[in-house]
Amino acid sequence: MDNIAGRKSGLSWAVNISVVLLVLLWIFPTVGLFVSSFRTADQISATGWWKALFPTEQVVQLRTDDPDARVAEGDGFVLTGNLFGEEGGTLSAFGVSSRDVGAFAPGETADMGDGESMTVEADGSYTWRGNDEQISGRGQRIFVTTTTPPEFTTANYERVLFSGDRTDSMAKAFFNTLTVTIPATIIPILVAAFAAYALAWMDFPGRALLIAAIVALLVVPLQLALIPLLKFHNDIGIGKGYIGTWLAHTGFGLPLAIYLLRNYMVGLPRDIIENAKVDGATDFQIFTRIVLPLSFPALASFAIFQFLWTWNDLLVALVFLIDSSGDTTVMTRQIVELLGTRGGNWEILATAAFVSISVPLLVFFAMQRYLVRGLLAGSVK
């Protein structure tokens, strides 16, 4: 009785909750990456991205000035200065031992034993009293608890996009990725559209075998064809370049493209095609003036898949786009190099990663309304 028209299924709440959870699982990492790309390295190390809008409290280790600048006072010596230097700052607590980094409040005097003491004010100014042996060496280590206001910067993007250093800059890699992705998306769509129309509306011997072969190619692992295809490309002189990469992406994407478009075109009304043929239209005219405009949802659906795959691809780029000079390095490979050389610079990695996903996000949201329509094409009559 739950399936009666006008009544919702008893499992609808589970479906809704699942959808919400999936959306949140996708949104949270993306927002976190975006926020982290505008934060400094110190803030990323101190707190998570969800605390980016609030002041952060962190403990830093500072040292006093050169003990040689001490001044005699009575039977001992005094050294004064400011822990923050010219930059300035504010502290909420301090300590002289790593076992209790917040033992004293600003203005209190820490008794260090044997007549040695340390007084630190809120602005970082300190007074260190002791004898000649105590006020010596590299200076006294002091643990300071500071409160840092929220800070956002575009310096990470300036460094990633406009740095002259090939290791840091992703501007060249960004345009290299566009050079790979745009032709690798357009070429298979053009080829697959013609093939899908032929398999859907033209009668010729072996059509069923071709459809079966295309379905079989959908399950062939990409890795099996890499080495033979690279050898073939090298033999004909197109290996290690853009042309070889375009053809590789085209070949690997054609089975899905033909299968998707053919299923959609088969579902088009037969009367439209037959009436056009009665009016004297050729197959090419029917394809370009009737079938292609009606197949736009399926074309857009495949374009999303193909664009996202080629944009985020690393394996094919490493195999078919090898260049030691870095002139053809794509963004996925550039991020790998950043991970290898600057594994601790999280602000740079976060910025580079968000730059890499920004274009796919724009493409997906611009064309996502066609995605479901194209995927469901041909599933019902």
Rank of each mutant, 00 (worst) to 15 (best):
K8D: 09
S12K: 14
L21M: 14
L21I: 15
W26P: 01
G32L: 12
S37K: 06
F38S: 00
A46T: 04
Q58H: 15
L62C: 10
T64Q: 07
A69E: 07
G76K: 00
V78E: 02
G81W: 10
G89Y: 10
F94E: 00
A103N: 01
F104S: 03
A105L: 13
A105W: 06
S117Q: 11
M118C: 09
T127H: 00
W128R: 12
G130K: 12
G139F: 13
G139S: 12
Q140M: 10
F143A: 05
F143L: 14
T145S: 15
T147P: 00
T154K: 00
N156M: 07
M170D: 01
K172G: 15
A173W: 03
F175H: 03
N176G: 05
T181D: 02
I189F: 09
A195P: 00
L199Q: 03
A208D: 12
V215I: 13
L224W: 10
A225C: 07
L230Y: 10
N234V: 06
I243G: 10
G244L: 14
L254Q: 02
P255Y: 08
Y264D: 04
M265S: 00
V266K: 07
V266M: 11
I273F: 08
D279V: 10
T288I: 04
P293C: 15
L299W: 06
S301Y: 12
F302N: 01
T310Q: 05
L315K: 05
V319L: 03
S325N: 13
G326K: 09
V336A: 09
V355D: 00
V363W: 11
Q368N: 14
Q368K: 14
R369Y: 03
R373E: 11
